[in-house]
């Protein structure tokens, strides 16, 4: 497993190994699109609030008593310590319960778990961040980090796809990011005549610019099928497999590599991932239903 160069961090929220959550209050709910909102949470324990740290790409387990837990990637700035942002799509029992939360309600948290986007190792490189749908929230912390250290990176290109223009997340921030010299290419699967932007799919955005494979890293997150085609385009442009980082999604339940659900071959996605160098998961990537 030497391909897993990414640093592992131990969970800041100690669950005693029994999945005991710490409690956090909903301080703000930011609707992002139909069926998606960002929940800003603050730990009730102020010491924990001060001690909590996460790295871009890591996730928390959010617990709704009576419903269970859901793995939700952290979408806020790692340097923002008082509240933590979780962008949630309401698709399952737990997330639909989260959808019923109001300001001041309480939710359980365990985390942070998993590997992170290795931004500290990518300084000096050109970065292509290729995301689709609900794949952008796990990369937003990395983007904040890059913006704060903009001079340390080369060309930054964000390729972002959504189903329709109204499904685009964080639209109001994208212009801010552009000002910091990030080339942002947005595309949607379908639109009406009012949409002035691009229509098409994320992988084809690779057709529209040139990259230097010797100094480029690709970070991608989104539906696995999209990741497959993004990797395909990156490999076609000779980006090395260990310079392509993918965030994998599996049924994550414990966050400790213990319950077994999130396995891909030898890996437990919750602890060995979710961020993998593509070289690590390549042998299993095109195996059906693995």
């Amino acid at each position: 497993m030497t391909a897993l160069a990414a640093v592992r961090t131990s969970a800041a929220v100690n669950d005693g190994g029994l999945l005991k959550p710490s409690w956090a209050e909903v301080v703000k709910i930011q609707p992002e699109a139909e069926g998606i909102a960002t929940y800003w949470l603050r730990f009730q324990d102020s010491n924990l609030s001060k001690a909590y740290r996460f790295l871009p790409g890591q996730f928390n387990m959010l617990y709704m008593p009576g419903y269970g837990e859901a793995a939700i990637s952290i979408s806020s700035d790692p340097e923002q310590r008082d509240v933590i942002g979780h962008t949630v799509r309401f698709v399952g029992n737990v997330t639909r319960a989260i959808n019923r939360l109001k300001i001041g309600d309480v939710v359980g948290i365990r985390g942070p778990f998993g590997t992170h986007w290795p931004v500290e190792n990518l300084e000096g490189k050109d970065l292509i961040i290729a995301v689709g749908g609900i794949g952008i929230p796990p990369l937003r912390p990395a983007i904040y980090h890059i913006l704060r250290n903009r001079a340390k990176f080369g060309k930054i290109t964000l390729l972002y796809g959504a189903r329709t223009p109204s499904d685009l997340l964080f639209s109001s921030e994208l212009d801010e990011w552009r000002k910091s010299d990030i080339d942002i290419q947005i595309t949607v699967d379908r639109a009406d005549s009012n949409w002035q932007g691009q229509v098409g799919v994320v992988p084809t955005l690779f057709y529209k610019f040139r990259l230097d494979p010797t100094r480029t890293a690709v970070l991608t997150c989104g539906p696995e099928i999209m990741i497959r085609f993004v990797v395909f385009e990156a490999l076609a442009r000779r980006v090395p497999t260990n310079q392509i980082y993918v965030s994998m999604e599996r049924n994550m339940k414990c966050g400790q590599g213990s319950c077994g659900h999130c396995q891909i071959g030898p890996y437990f996605v919750c602890k060995d991932g979710p961020v993998f160098p593509f070289s690590a998961v390549e042998p299993y990537f095109n195996v059906e239903d693995f």
Binding site: M1, R89, V91, G92, T95, P223, E249, R250, N251, H261, Q263, G265, P266, E288, D289, F290
Partner: peptide, 29 residues
Amino acid sequence: SYQAGGNTRPNVRSRYRQWLTHKLGSWKQ
């Protein structure tokens, strides 16, 4: 293997394969 969006291992073939390739395979790793 259910997750939002479907089932990673939607059939018996993939489930049996997971069991055996874990038990006598990736377990070692």
